[in-house]
């Protein structure tokens, strides 16, 4: 039955296919990054980084957008991390598999698949109008928190499940309570996985536009409090490009956005590695 292929030949073909896939993906990624950076970096000046936009973003800088991005993201992470990690611990450690855990998991998975604009609409109705938080960093951050919650729950749950079950037994057998076992053994062991979820969440927050426009607005001035409206880099870029205000500044903003994400990822990795290295 079928054609007999020499296993060595299959081996070679597989090698070629797998290598080409990897190289193709790398090429694609680097092309995009290099294209944007090369188009954007020439327009980045000290002034561009330290001034707020003027003339709708045609001139001036993007400082308010950088601040807006960081503020909205920080609010989202600060709110979503304890909720998400807490839910993950509830699902894995504080309850046995039941109808309730299935419902929570199913809801989280469904939420993960909803387009961000729907979160934006929810945020607009609930945070902006019903809770009267207005278009603000707080509304935007809370909306993003809801949006990234499923990701954080999912990755944290996976991370906690990969902690060897014997660690729990050992901790309990040495007189540890559930809480002590969680804080001293499970969280440190699951930290790299939990951090992955948080980094993915940061990425989604920084890149979000639709949900932000509906909840934080697109104000150009410098935000002064959590209740100020704000424009994020992604929103600024979107408006500059879609309304043809300034393509140069759009590319420069995109370059800053990419550099910001790179810096956050590198920083988070360094932080996690420092913690993990102590435990190997």
């Amino acid at each position: 039955m079928g054609i007999r292929v020499n296993p060595r030949t299959t081996q070679k073909i597989a090698k070629v296919v797998i290598w080409s896939a990897a190289i193709l993906v790398l090429l694609l990624l680097f092309t995009i990054i290099i294209y944007i950076l090369s188009k954007g970096i020439p327009h980045i000046t000290w002034q561009f980084l330290t001034e707020i936009p003027s003339d709708m973003g045609k001139s001036g800088g993007i400082l308010s957008a950088i601040v807006g991005t960081l503020a909205v993201t920080i609010v989202a992470i600060v709110v979503a991390t304890p909720l998400g990690v807490g839910t993950a611990f509830y699902l894995t450690e504080y309850t046995r598999e039941s109808g309730v855990t299935k419902i929570i998991r199913f809801s989280a998975e469904s939420l993960a698949g909803i387009p961000s604009i729907v979160y934006g609409l929810f945020g607009f109705i609930f945070f902006v109008t019903y809770l009267k938080l207005g278009w603000s960093i707080l509304s935007g951050g809370l909306t993003l928190a809801v949006m990234i919650l499923p990701t954080i729950i999912r990755t944290s749950e996976e991370a906690i499940r990969t902690v060897p079950p014997m660690y729990r037994e050992v901790s309990f057998s040495l007189g540890g309570t559930k809480w002590q076992t969680m804080t001293k053994v499970l969280i440190p062991s699951a930290l790299p996985g939990i951090a992955t979820g948080i980094i993915l969440g940061i990425g989604r927050c920084v890149a979000e536009t639709a949900a932000i426009i509906l909840t934080a607005g697109s104000a150009l001035q410098m935000p002064t409090s959590l209740f100020s409206p704000a424009r994020t880099l992604a929103v600024h870029f979107y408006i500059l490009a879609s309304e043809g205000i300034s393509l140069e500044n759009a590319y420069a903003t995109a370059a800053i956005l990419i550099i910001l994400i790179l810096l956050i990822n590198i920083g988070a990795n360094l932080l996690v590695n420092r913690v993990v290295a102590k435990r190997r």
């Binding site: 660690y167 037994e169 540890g176 309570t177 435990r279």
Partner: peptide
């Protein structure tokens, strides 16, 4: 107190392993 069949140090230093119980 119990020693299990599979040797299971916790992922921390030798000192911290032994001090784990007293610290708890």
């Amino acid at each position: 107190s119990m020693v299990f069949e599979v040797p299971t140090p916790l992922p921390m230093s030798i000192f911290d392993n032994v001090a784990y119980g007293p610290r708890l």
